[in-house]
Design a protein around this nucleic acid. Structure first.
Length: 267
DNA sequence: ATGGTCGGAAACCGA
């Protein structure tokens, strides 16, 4: 069984590429982030025509997560229990569509789009950290309830856990940029302490291995990227991993997402 | 020449 995660940065703008990619890679499950559409605008046929069931959670042009599967799609959950809400400047808090869970052939898959944080002193940063803390508590609970559970927490984590996960750590430090701060990294490590492991890094070690390249500044041709998309597996899931890869080729050419798909092959 | 990008409920905001 092959599972994958991909921040497509607008599904409608990327429909042709996503369809071609599905046909080419032959994955069984794809977790998608940043669909950037509501259910009414979601390209359901794209998946159905290619043999996939699909679940989507999207409320506006922002965020949006989906899971496509051709090995079953059960117990779909929009948001995790206690998922923090965000209300900008005291406005009505909303539960943003950033998490979608579904069981696919015995694997509990979560498609996750972790809040960006925007800046170290922005109100989105405590939101990001709180969001991760609550998810970590939930994920720890799932494992306590069933230590044999096969769980894949996959998506755009918006964290670069190690110095080698950005092209120039000194620049990030000097500029006080997000994604590499100690609180963000601690939030990521908390998942590892709870029993989850990055199942891709052993098969795609750095340095210089990334999943995201900013559209600006010619970051991709200059090989200046960030590793921020991860598949964290529970012990039972991790023990099934046969190989993993980052599809850097998909970042090439006109009409590419700024994120590359990340693929994990299970026994 | 010392900046170079995308997408969308766009003429700004979010990444």
């Amino acid at each position: 069984m092959k599972i994958a995660t991909w921040n497509v940065n607008s599904l409608r703008a990327r429909a042709d590429r996503v369809e071609a990619w599905l046909r080419r890679t032959d994955v069984d499950v794809l977790a998608i982030q940043e669909t950037k559409c509501r259910d009414e605008n979601f390209p359901w046929e794209l998946f159905e025509n290619n043999g996939y069931e699909v679940a989507h959670f999207g409320l506006s042009q922002w965020n949006g997560v989906a899971i496509a599967s051709r090995v079953g799609l059960e117990d779909v959950e929009r948001a995790f229990a206690g998922q923090p809400v965000f209300g900008k400047g005291g406005k009505d808090p909303v539960q943003e569509p950033r998490a979608l869970g579904a069981t696919c052939n015995g694997v509990r898959v979560w498609s996750l789009y972790v809040p960006n944080g925007r800046a170290l002193d922005d109100e989105h940063m405590p939101y990001k950290l709180q969001w991760l803390d609550v998810l970590k508590d939930q994920a720890a609970g799932w494992l306590q309830a069933d230590p044999q559970a096969q769980i894949a927490l996959m998506g755009d984590w918006n964290i670069a856990p190690q110095d080698e996960d950005v092209w120039d750590i000194d620049l990030f430090r000097r500029e006080g940029l997000t994604h590499v701060s100690e609180p963000e990294r601690a939030a990521f490590r908390a998942f590892e302490r709870a029993g989850y492991a990055d199942v891709v890094r052993p098969f795609a070690p750095g340095p210089g291995v990334y999943t995201y390249w900013d559209y600006t500044q010619l970051r991709f041709p200059k090989k200046e990227g960030m590793r921020i998309d991860f598949v964290l597996g529970s012990p039972a899931l991790a023990s099934r991993v046969r190989s993993a890869s980052i599809d850097r080729e998909e970042r090439k050419g006109k009409g590419a997402s700024d994120h590359a798909p990340v693929i994990v092959e299970l026994d």
